[in-house]
Deep mutational scan, measured.
Amino acid sequence: TTVVVGNKKYTFDNPEAAEKFAKKVAKKLGATVHKTNGTFKVK
């Protein structure tokens, strides 16, 4: 599962961990999490 934050990509074996990370980053940046085909995008 990939999490994309700006131009950085983070890969997780565990989708739950990926989602948690994405939400944490989004909260910090005041952004939102978008899920597309198993990829979480923070923007």
Rank of each mutant, 00 (worst) to 15 (best):
H34F: 11
K28F: 08
F12V: 01
K20E: 12
Y10I: 05
T32K: 09
K23Y: 15
K28R: 11
A17R: 10
T39Q: 15
V5T: 03
T32P: 04
N7V: 10
T1R: 06
T11K: 13
A26Y: 02
G38N: 09
K23V: 14
P15E: 14
E16P: 05
A17V: 12
T36V: 15
A17Q: 10
V5Q: 02
K23E: 14
G6E: 04
K43C: 12
V5P: 00
H34V: 15
F12K: 01
N7W: 10
T36R: 05
N7E: 08
N37G: 11
A17H: 09
A22V: 04
F12N: 00
N37R: 05
T2E: 08
G38W: 04
L29N: 04
G6W: 10
N37H: 06
K35G: 05
T36G: 09
K9V: 14
G38L: 04
T32Q: 09
V4K: 07
D13W: 10
F21M: 03
K24L: 11
L29C: 04
D13F: 09
K27E: 13
V33C: 03
D13N: 10
V33E: 02
P15G: 07
K20V: 10
G6C: 07
T2A: 10
T32N: 06
T2F: 13
V42Y: 02
N37Q: 07
F21R: 00
K43S: 15
N37I: 04
K35F: 15
A18K: 00
V25T: 06
T36P: 02
L29V: 06
V25L: 12
N14E: 08
D13M: 11
V25K: 04
L29G: 03
T2V: 13
V33G: 01
F21C: 03
T36S: 11
K28I: 09
Y10V: 04
P15H: 10
F21G: 00
K8T: 08
V42E: 03
F21K: 01
A18N: 00
K27F: 09
T36E: 15
A26E: 01
A31P: 01
G30L: 04
V42Q: 02
A26R: 01
A18E: 00
F40L: 14
Y10G: 00
V3Y: 01
K8D: 05
K9H: 14
N14S: 12
F40Q: 03
T32F: 06
T36K: 07
A26Q: 02
G30R: 06
K43Q: 15
G6Y: 14
V42S: 02
G6P: 02
F40M: 07
E16S: 11
A22E: 01
K8S: 08
G6F: 14
N14K: 09
V3D: 00
V25G: 00
F21T: 01
V33Y: 06
A18D: 00
A26V: 02
A31W: 15
Y10T: 02
N37K: 07
V33M: 05
K35D: 06
A18Y: 00
K35H: 12
K23M: 14
H34C: 11
K8Q: 09
K24H: 12
F40K: 03
A18M: 01
K20Y: 11
A31Y: 08
K24R: 13
L29T: 06
K24C: 09
V42H: 02
V25Q: 05
V5R: 02
Y10D: 00
N37T: 05
E16F: 11
G38A: 04
V25N: 02
V25I: 12
G30P: 01
Y10R: 03
L29K: 03
G38C: 05
F21Q: 01
G38E: 06
G38S: 06
K43A: 14
K20I: 11
T1W: 14
G38F: 04
A17E: 12
H34W: 07
D13S: 14
N14M: 07
P15L: 10
V4G: 03
D13P: 14
T39H: 15
A26M: 02
V25E: 05
K20H: 10
T39P: 03
T39K: 06
A26S: 05
A17L: 12
V42G: 03
P15V: 12
K41W: 15
K35N: 09
K27T: 09
E19T: 04
K35E: 09
G6L: 09
Y10A: 02
F12S: 00
G38P: 03
V5Y: 04
T1N: 08
H34K: 07
V4S: 07
L29P: 02
V33S: 02
G38T: 06
T39V: 15
A18P: 00
K24Y: 14
